[in-house]
Amino acid sequence: MSDSAIVEAARQFILDRFLPGEAAGALTPTTPLISTGILDSLSVLELVTFLENRYSIEFAAHEVDRAHLDTLVAIESTVRQKGGRG
């Protein structure tokens, strides 16, 4: 099964912005992003701004954390819960 559009969009954003030169395949839907240092605290904030703008959703202050954003799968689920459509 191919990855959802949300996973794909988040993957592309992270690759372009934070992993220039990396092959798309290296970033799987379950690769930990925050605990591995791929995304640091400032990168996470940029990702949130990207997701908010793209999907017209809003993150509450306490949702900007590892539980909601550590993998592409978690990101997709968070975006969907907020009514974002891929």
């Binding site: 990396e22 092959a23 240092g37």
Partner: peptide
């Protein structure tokens, strides 16, 4: 891969 290298770094260096 860059992901591998970042993972390696995260095991040996502080995030910053």
């Amino acid at each position: 891969s860059v992901v591998d290298l970042k993972k390696y770094c995260s095991a040996h260096l502080p995030l910053w």
